[in-house]
Nucleic acid binder design. Structure first.
Lengths: 337, 337
DNA sequence: ATTTAGCACTCGTTGGTGTCGAGTGCTAAA
DNA sequence: TTTAGCACTCGACACCAACGAGTGCTAAAT
């Protein structure tokens, strides 16, 4: 049953025990600790030799020679995979009831989801709104306001509206506004943001008088797209101080530099493999800048539409069981909405 | 010339020297250090006795008995008052040229003012938009969109527009939209936000059919006011790590808790005495939660209109000269715009 | 072939001790 | 009032010993 490639059952058990213990205590685990708490019917010597081979295999490391073992990133990955493959493990019931007592309606949950996740998991959370690729412009309208000024509205399919006042050009065209609205509608309505942004529309001759207007509208759309894409909401930054590894200023620095770097967060969370539900990034090996931290996130849909990603960021030594449960639970709430 | 109430010239000189030195080095200053750098023609013993009395007077303290002196909040205040009263001290020329090389147009500066202040001073900066008290509603318009939906626009005198889509009530009134616009204009146009929010309008009989609409509009206005008021932009949080006192996690924690607490920031910066140009809050005595930090801020106008406050937050041991110069310089740029 | 008891070994932690030197306060003379 | 001089304080640093938690290895037991 034991071979070099896989892990024997006993080794798996030891590995799980060790990660479990380290997650709650943040202290190196000794062979005798494992014996006492998890495997009383085997001697410490045996455990020690198993630990030695697990270390050789890259799952563990020792802070120093006469200390216990500490899990490596590889160990955390093993641990997470274990959780993910055995769904039954997750105690969603408990999470669900916590959510139920705190929040009355699902709508509230969506709105505050980042804050909820942070509160329930006790880690810093992040919510990133999904890409704008399938946002469609429903309508563009120009509304006359007062002397020479007009308001441009861009209405999209996800309910949001971007507006801006512009100065109207001096013109002698009759019904300028009316004509403009017709043209704008024909040009933009029904098109996706990406299409609009990437197409270099040639204004045909009859549109000359509207060139300036079109340019302004186009810029609005581009701005809107950019603003949408870069939005990340972070909640509960202070939670990090609950964990002893962040008594070291360098770790705090690292944490803040990641959390404040939106581009980096996007990069880390957005797997090339877009199909997987959960993204779990652990430590340096997954991303150099992560250092001793981990990011767990999930993709969500709301009312069938892709909504974005929601996740937590915390120490490598993270309570993955809890985090994954919570993220999963929220996901089902969203989808069943 | 020396009396118990005021400070002798020599004591002032010593005090200034000490604060100056501590601001740059963050280390306790000894009597001999002062002698060497600032007062070579007097003995250390003399300086020591002066230091002792300054300590009695509450300007200084000793980390421990065989260490040099460190300035207290009181000393910083003395130092700042000194700067403020002797305008000529400020080397605005230099600051101005720095700003000039970095930014081409004044408009850019306004937009990025928080970032600029943080970069130039090397401290964390904050920009808070001024109160909404004198924002006036210019117009309220309802615009028919599509089947039963309408867009409500609120136009204010500071150029901004708040919009939201609402569902129109089922009605059999002719020209519902037109009538509504008339009513809305008569009710809201020209009024200040505060007035509107605090008046409990009784809807008169003829308005019954518009009750729901009015309620929605009113809520929009309230939301708008709240959102405006709570907006604080913070830039350069990471800058804090440049200062050695923030190698202690507790100080970082304190820093973050203040910087993330918008209400607190408002409270600290908004003096009762609304007339003063600069607000300088130093340490615990000014506000318990400040701890060992200081906040310097100034009120600004832009194109004659009150714009808000802009300031920096950093260690008590702050380069007040530089900070005040920068804030002042930006102020004149704004006002001369 | 595994497991285990036993033992030597490693090394971080803790606490004690001694020395150095920066800096002070005080006193007595200038 | 200033200053030289001196005793004193106390943190920083280095060194050392003892402790103990934990390991790896080996040789015997299963």
């Amino acid at each position: 049953m034991k071979d070099n490639k896989g892990l024997s059952e006993r080794r798996k058990k030891i590995l799980n025990a060790l990660v479990d213990s380290y997650i709650t205590n943040a202290e190196p685990i000794s062979s005798s600790a494992i014996k006492d708490k998890y495997m009383p019917d085997v001697s410490t010597a045996t455990i020690r030799s198993e630990l030695a081979t697990l270390e050789e295999m890259g799952y563990l490391s020792q802070p120093h020679i006469s200390a216990g073992r500490v899990p490596s990133s590889k160990a955390y990955k093993f641990y997470v995979d274990n959780i993910l493959s055995s769904e039954s493990q997750m105690d969603t019931q408990q999470i669900k009831s916590v959510l139920a007592t705190k929040y009355a309606s699902i709508k509230e949950i969506v709105k505050d989801s980042a804050k909820i996740v942070s509160d329930v998991t006790n880690y810093t959370s992040m919510l990133m709104i999904s890409s704008t690729d399938n946002i469609v412009v429903n309508d563009v309208k120009v509304i006359d306001m007062y002397d020479g000024t007009a308001l441009v509205l861009i209405v999209t399919n996800n309910g949001s509206i971007k507006d801006k006042t512009i100065k109207l050009p001096e013109t002698n065209i009759n019904n300028y506004i009316e004509v403009a609205n017709g043209l704008l509608y024909r040009t933009f309505a029904g098109k996706r943001l990406v299409e609009i942004v990437h197409s270099h529309n040639v204004i045909d001759a009859q549109l000359r008088d509207f060139e300036q207007l079109f340019e302004q509208v186009l810029n609005m759309i581009i701005d809107y797209k950019n603003a949408r894409e870069s939005q990340i909401q972070i909640e509960g930054k202070d939670k990090i101080f609950n964990y002893p590894e962040y008594n070291d200023v360098n770790n705090v620095k690292n944490f803040l530099s990641i959390v404040n770097d939106q581009e980096k967060l996007h990069e880390i969370v957005n797997d090339k493999d877009g199909s997987i539900e959960f993204s779990v990034k652990i430590g340096k090996e997954d991303d150099e800048t992560l250092g001793d931290m981990a990011i767990v996130s999930a993709k969500y849909k709301f009312s069938g539409e892709e909504m974005g990603q929601l996740g937590v960021i915390g120490p490598q030594r993270m309570d993955y069981k809890k985090v994954l449960s919570v993220l999963k639970e929220i996901g089902t709430l969203f989808e069943n909405n």
